[in-house]
Amino acid sequence: MSALASPDIDEDIDLMRTVDPDRPWQTVVWNDPVNLMTYVVRVLREYFGYSREVATRLMLAVHNEGHAVVSEGPREQMELHAQAMHDYGLWATIRKAPE
């Protein structure tokens, strides 16, 4: 029998700094050349339950800045939100919230 090789471990790595389970994730909606601004507002109101004002502000961020964070929370929930945005025909991704 041969011994199993194990990788060198750098003991100076602070695991609590590199893996932060409490740091939230974000669902980001991206600008696209297909969907109308009114449709994006309708999707945000319908799916997230945002008021017209909040949905319009987020849509304008998508339009003017290229993207907007539309939700923040646990990774699994953000993945569901991103999939829902895809189902509506919007471009969406998830990412870790900035520190």
Rank of each mutant, 00 (worst) to 15 (best):
Y47C: 03
I9W: 08
F48Q: 06
L58H: 04
E79I: 09
P7R: 10
M85H: 07
E53P: 00
D87L: 08
P21G: 05
L15A: 07
P33W: 06
E11Q: 10
A5Y: 06
N35T: 08
H86S: 13
A92V: 08
M85I: 07
E79K: 07
M37E: 03
P33K: 01
Y47H: 12
A5D: 14
D22V: 11
F48D: 06
A92Y: 02
V43Y: 02
E46V: 09
Y39K: 09
E79G: 01
G89C: 09
D8S: 12
Q77T: 13
H81D: 15
E72S: 15
V34C: 01
L36P: 00
A92C: 12
W91H: 12
V54M: 12
T93W: 06
T18E: 13
N31S: 12
L4E: 15
L90M: 11
Q26N: 11
H63I: 07
G89L: 03
A68S: 14
V41C: 05
A92P: 10
S71C: 03
W91L: 13
Q83W: 01
L36R: 12
Y47V: 11
E99S: 07
H81W: 07
L4S: 12
R57L: 04
N31V: 01
Y39N: 02
Q83S: 13
W25T: 08
R52G: 02
V54Q: 11
E65F: 04
R23A: 13
D87E: 15
D12K: 09
A55K: 01
R57S: 09
D20G: 04
A84N: 08
G89N: 06
M1S: 14
E76W: 04
R42C: 00
M37N: 04
L80M: 13
P74N: 04
P33M: 02
H67I: 00
E65G: 01
M85S: 09
L58S: 01
E99F: 04
V40H: 00
N31M: 02
G73L: 06
E72D: 02
R75C: 09
D87S: 13
A68C: 08
D8A: 13
P98Y: 00
A3F: 10
T18C: 09
P98G: 12
V41P: 04
E65V: 03
T38A: 13
P21F: 08
G66F: 05
S71E: 11
R95D: 09
E11G: 04
D14H: 10
D10T: 02
A92L: 02
Y50K: 12
V34F: 10
L60K: 15
R75K: 15
R52W: 09
S6T: 12
P24Y: 10
M59D: 05
V54A: 10
I13V: 15
G49P: 08
H81C: 10
A97R: 15
V28A: 08
F48N: 07
Y39M: 07
P24T: 05
K96G: 00
Q83H: 10
N64A: 11
H86R: 14
D22R: 14
W25V: 05
N35W: 00
M85K: 08
L80R: 14
E46P: 00
G73K: 04
K96W: 02
G89A: 07
P98A: 14
R17D: 14
W25L: 05
Y39I: 06
Y50T: 00
L60G: 00
I94V: 15
V34W: 04
N35F: 03
